[in-house]
Design a protein around this nucleic acid. Structure first.
Length: 592
RNA sequence: GGGGGCGUAGCUCAGUUUGGUUAGAGCACUCGACUGUCACUCGAGAGGUCGCGGGUUCGAGCCCCGUCGCUCCCGCCA
């Protein structure tokens, strides 16, 4: 299949059954060994390595000379016969190790300068620094590890397209030059040449366009969508990233979730993993109550509990004042945690404090005795109620949930890490749903959308609490794997009046303002909108997880650094002043 | 915007604790030897703005100040 005019076979697929064939190969010199009379070259292409053997019995003197002189990473074409190696010359570590090519002709078609960083590494030899790998990306991408990652990425994309297309989903494209959105992340802006002072934005997601597709009657849509967000980076966050974006009409939440389960099943299967056909569901409220976060890692227990009623019976000042202030005392039991030193538990407390908690209360039960600041306040009833086994350590935070939950979440994760409770082979998929519709600033009381402003609230909540939107839950859902969010979505608002009310609740009360910012969505909804909803998956993150790569940069061909630069091609750059003038722009500040 | 780590030969690193002769090693590179290697082996050689700028000192890779780059985390990411 990979044969061309210049080559008959790829290097890495030659086997014993090819013995006797005359082949033409093309590839990169991975390594070479010049033994004087004999020269061996490991020739590499994206399928793997094969050994070329050059010797006076079958190679011309000029061929031998060329083979001895060619530098690593040069591109050569060669012709030769596939021969079986003698038993003691077989290399069991090579896929092609049972054969070699007796070279009869060799041409160096792409001589290479000495590479700035090694492509072929010795066993145990470290990789070059990432900065250099990014600067010389053309070399780094030659490494089999990165080639494998990008090949897997390709396969995952093909599976995605086949899976969705087979189910009637249409792959439709949306603009890259779009309208700036006032909410959410910072936009990348693109100045308009023909309209002085006006700007396009690169899309943060195709959200509004895909809802409009639903209004148009394209009732099943998907897109492998490039999205852009001008925010600071992380190992798992790039300014430009790829989403699998999905939307469908005449659906309810479970329709979308069933599709999500099927698609992720197909992707994980492609990467060689078996996963359950159905994911567990958990409410946001339960996730926060029992795990302290909205994307719990269920590979281990250490569930949180509310210990308020026990502490209510204890005359302990710290918890007393918290309870009196309306807060709760929540915590967890860590089996075996009593063996930790004072210093180790102090480190846990530091974690809790860094997450905003005032402290981390501890109660040790070891050698039949209880100790910790609480110990002398314990009643017999309380002792029994805590239910600590010998060797257990109980940890508590007495604070409002918005402080205690994130603090206990971090403590829980660190305890699991220390106790090595995490089975890396386990894949715990989970759907978290019934998110609150709004997040309320606990000082100003202002509402912001937890998901986005197009998400439909739970009808039951609107009925039960018509005047208390802060209590509404949203028809939103996230798919979580082992504590990582893979994707999320919602049932959308399809009633234009409701959408308008939603904007008002979010502080865009002025109708003219709503029309100016979101008129193109409202018009679409008014023109007859079906009930619809969807989901979007972070494709780079999925490719990272399935390839086992430690960073998003290892599954993206040309990624940005944490300062949002491309070291390879060198972007961004200053541009000539005439170019700015054509765009009606002037740069201010120290570089102007 | 804030905090931590790193920056010495083309690459990976040692040297910085306690300032002191000419800054070292492995790999890669160049030259030479070698007919069964597969991280070939052996011999020789070349290769340095110790990220950059300033300061302290008789003397700075090492100490101080600043700055740049990469990276991890917090903020941020509807």
């Amino acid at each position: 299949m990979l044969a061309t005019s210049l080559r008959s076979d790829p290097c890495g697929l030659l086997r014993l059954e090819d013995v006797g064939r005359t082949v033409q190969l093309g590839g990169w010199v991975h390594r070479s060994r010049d033994l004087g009379g004999l020269v061996f070259i490991d020739l590499r292409d994206r399928t793997g390595l094969v050994q070329l053997a050059c010797g006076p019995a079958w190679s011309a003197a000029e061929t031998l000379r060329l083979a001895a002189a060619v530098g690593v990473e040069s591109v050569v074409l060669c012709e030769g016969e596939v021969v079986a190696r003698e038993a003691d010359r077989v290399n069991p570590e090579m896929a092609t190790g049972a054969v070699e090519i007796r070279v009869t002709a060799l041409t160096v078609v792409g001589p290479a300068v000495t590479p700035a960083l090694p492509v072929a590494r010795g066993r145990g030899e470290k990789m070059a620094a990432e900065e250099l790998r990014l600067r010389h990306r053309y070399l780094d991408l030659r490494r089999p590890e990165l080639q494998d990652n990008l090949v897997l990425r390709h396969r995952l994309l093909q599976v995605t397209r086949r899976y969705l297309s087979d189910r009637g989903y249409l792959e439709l494209e949306t603009p890259i030059l779009t309208k700036p959105t006032p909410e959410g992340a910072r936009d990348y802006l693109v100045p308009s040449r023909v309209h002085p002072g006006e700007f396009y934005a690169l899309p943060q997601s195709p959200q509004i366009y895909k809802q409009l597709f639903m209004c148009c009657g394209f009732d099943r849509y998907f897109q492998v969508a490039r999205c852009f967000r001008d925010e600071d980076l992380r190992a798992d966050r790039q300014p430009e990233f790829t989403q699998i974006d999905i939307e469908a009409s005449f659906v309810e939440r479970e329709d979308i979730l069933a599709l999500a389960e099927g698609l992720l099943g197909a992707l994980w299967t492609e990467a060689g993993h078996a996963i359950p056909a159905h994911f567990d569901r958990m409410s946001y409220a339960d996730a926060m109550e029992f795990y302290g976060c909205d994307r719990p890692d269920l590979r281990y227990g250490l569930r949180l509990r509310d210990y308020s009623s026990i502490f209510a019976g204890l005359d302990f000042a710290v918890t007393r004042s918290a309870l009196d202030a309306g807060a709760r005392v929540r915590g967890m039991v860590v089996p075996g945690g009593a063996a930790w030193s004072r210093k180790q538990v102090d480190e846990l407390e530091a974690l809790a404090k860094s997450a905003g908690a005032g402290g981390l209360l501890r109660l040790r039960h070891a050698d039949g005795a209880y100790d910790g600041p609480l110990a002398k306040f314990l009643t017999d009833d309380a002792r029994a109620a805590f239910g600590l086994a010998d060797g257990d350590l109980a940890l508590f935070v007495a604070a409002p949930d918005r402080i205690a939950s994130p603090a206990l979440d971090r403590v829980r994760q660190e305890c699991a890490r220390r106790l090595e409770l995490i089975d890396e082979r386990q894949q715990c998929f989970l759907v978290v749903m019934d998110f609150p519709m709004f997040e309320q600033d606990h000082v100003t009381g202002a509402l912001t959308a937890v998901h986005h402003p197009f998400t439909a609230p739970h009808p039951a909540d609107m009925q039960s609490f018509p005047d208390a939107p802060a209590r509404w839950r949203a028809l939103a859902y996230d798919v979580v794997l082992n504590g990582t969010e893979l994707g999320g979505g919602s049932i959308r608002i399809s009633d234009p009046a409701m959408q308008s009310r939603m904007f008002s609740l979010l502080g865009i009360g002025d109708v003219a303002d709503q029309e100016r910012r979101f008129g193109f969505l409202l018009e679409g909804l008014r023109a007859g909108a079906p009930p619809h909803g969807g989901i979007a998956f972070g494709f780079d993150r999925i490719a990272m997880l399935l390839s086992g790569a430690p960073s998003l940069r290892d599954v993206i061909a040309f990624p940005k650094t944490t300062a949002a630069r491309s070291l390879f091609e060198g972007a961004p750059v200053a541009v000539p002043i005439e170019d700015l003038e054509a765009l009606h722009l002037a740069v201010t500040g120290p570089l102007a």
